[in-house]
Nucleic acid binder design. Structure first.
Lengths: 349, 349
DNA sequence: GGTTAGCAGTCTAGCCGATGGAGTGCTAGC
DNA sequence: GCTAGCACTCCATCGGCTAGACTGCTAACC
């Protein structure tokens, strides 16, 4: 396996043709098949020479001497990099996307749930969505409700999400005190982020007497708790059934690994976060061993950030076998991310 | 396949022994193996006669003439019915359950999420939980917040859940009107169910003028919407990865079916609802073709209701292969359901 | 030099038939 | 009614064989 130097144009064309055929068939591709697919006007003998060279360079491998060639992760990388930068989504699919985002949906979480389902339907792979970080979103409303001997802090974010936290009522505080704090202090925190709100609450707490002071201390704590919840239900997964049926995942163990990771969620976070800063173009592709996670899964991830304006809120993406239909996945993810951004922008404005 | 008449004691013992061995090994069980496992003091020849009879009765089947016997769904049913009514959960597992329910958790949904994970860890199968119906739960608080040109209805239920619905502000209504309705009408609805609250809101709407009337009409609509959301995120699934690794699910298609159903959720609802009215004992078991759903999945479901007092709130259960370790599953589900009931009771009191 | 037709060589998937073994059903004796 | 013994059945396994799919190489060709 040698250095990944620049390939000659013909080698690149041959490689792309081979990957294309392999993605379709799933079987080792012979020189004859490549010759017909690549339409270079050269015979299979010439292709054979080139294939041998490409194997030497680390782009291809052979299951055994008298079999065709199978692409390595490196070959997929070349193939993906050579794809048109903005592949078109076929019309029926495009229409499905537009239709989905036509319906008004209440909050970002609901939209993301629907989006993962949409993406799975379009691509037939499992889908992921990274929800916007609570930390950075603005509070539309902060409300403290008294519930008998406890109180409940409700934080309505501009993403439409409502976070809650139940807090004990401090000694000597009554319903009236809770109400006073809710109206007097919390009302003014609209438009601030969770972090800013905490700072204000803490400061205000210093400048007042009991029992407001005690209540504000607990509110501060509750805001911290809400901020910490973030990691918990941050990743939305949809259409996992699709990869259960996928026979590219031959080994059961691999399938199990993926499902476990999807359930643990935190592991997927890093993968999606990394896609938030795309290396090139709006859609980022991670192929097999390019990342430890996808390497272990024997899978690839196609992801794209979404957000409002130039600010990325989160990421959506699909997980599929390394032998994935990258063209379809990339175009679907790209279009859905665009529409999702528009929807989120409309919601948070 | 003949009628499921009452089996002789010996036949029953032989059947149970065979099922027991088969659950352990997964391979067709021969007469010799049954003879050693059943410890009846009779030879394998006698067992052979009985096995032939049991096959005739529809309890067993043979993959081919010279193979051992494999239990049919009917055999599992006998086996399960003959299990001790309150099997003991081994101590380490029992301790894990107690530990889990020792931590105070904020609301029922969070508890259920944790419970499915707990059950999956205990049984190594996928777990389900049916959340309490919103319709029947009491409102702890109903709050109408004004958000610029819209308002948000928040319903805090006694399960700790907060449901929300965004509504447009009617023509001519302002923040003050919203507030007036919130304090004047909604405050009084504490302790009522969603349905009762709707009735009150509708009635009150008639007896008042604009713009309260318009606001109340929309609140009524929003309450209906919240009630309808019920079906959506009603079923919690956990540990699905466990059955992805399970090689009892030989056919990929079967696995895919199960995952699809778990994702659609609504399909699982019926299955769990039916377990809410147990035929006998606290834990209900549905084996393979006993229900169309599990039949298609080639799976079994072990489920038990949970609730406060004598009132069932919902159901928890596990989904596994027909060749499931029923003893372990039943004891785990039973103990977890008991503890969960206690936790929910403490929460809603 | 690059390209190509042709061919020998390699490796596998699939088929065949033989073999060993597991397990049954039946029978005859206890 | 139970059991030892036995003939019989059927499958899983293995080695050997074959057809076929590709390759790599060579020699001729442009």
């Amino acid at each position: 396996m040698a250095e990944a130097a620049k390939l000659s144009e013909r080698k690149a064309a041959i490689l792309s043709a081979l990957v294309h055929v392999y993605i379709r068939t799933g079987e080792p591709v012979g020189s004859e098949a490549v010759a017909t697919a690549a339409r270079l006007g050269v015979s299979s003998a010439t292709i054979r020479n080139e294939l041998a060279a490409l194997e030497e360079l680390g782009y291809l491998s052979q299951p055994h001497t008298s079999a065709g060639r199978v692409p390595t992760d490196l070959a997929y990388r070349c193939y993906v990099d050579a794809l048109p930068p903005r592949p078109k989504l076929p019309d029926p699919e495009r229409r499905a996307v537009l239709e989905f985002f036509d319906e008004a949906l209440a909050d970002v979480d609901e939209i993301l749930r629907g989006t993962t389902q949409l993406l799975s339907r379009l691509t037939h792979y499992a889908s992921l969505a990274l929800a916007p970080s609570r930390q950075e979103r603005a509070l539309v409303r902060l409300e403290l409700l008294s519930l008998g001997q406890a109180m409940m802090l409700l934080a309505v974010l501009d993403t439409g999400r409502v976070d809650k936290c139940v807090i004990d009522l401090p000694q000597g505080a009554g319903e009236a005190d809770v109400e006073r704090v809710s109206r007097g202090v919390l009302e003014r925190l609209r438009g601030q982020t969770l972090g800013e709100a905490r700072a204000h609450v803490a400061e205000r707490g210093k400048a007042t007497g009991e029992p407001e002071r005690a209540i504000l201390a607990r509110v501060d704590e509750a805001l911290a708790t809400i901020g910490r919840q973030e990691e918990g239900d941050h990743v939305v997964v949809g259409g996992a059934a699709n990869i259960a049926g996928e026979d590219s995942f031959a080994r059961r163990e691999t399938l199990r690994h993926i499902f476990e990771a999807l359930e643990r969620e935190t592991e997927v976070l890093g993968l999606l976060r990394q896609a938030t800063v795309p290396r090139e173009g709006p859609v980022s592709v991670t192929i097999g061993r390019e990342s430890p996670m996808t390497g272990q899964w024997e899978a690839s991830v196609v992801a794209a950030p979404y957000g409002a304006g130039d600010r990325a809120f989160g990421t959506i993406g699909v997980v599929g076998p390394i032998r994935m239909d990258y063209l379809a996945a990339i175009s679907a993810v790209r279009v859905v991310a665009e529409r999702l951004s528009a929807a989120v922008e409309a919601l948070t404005r």
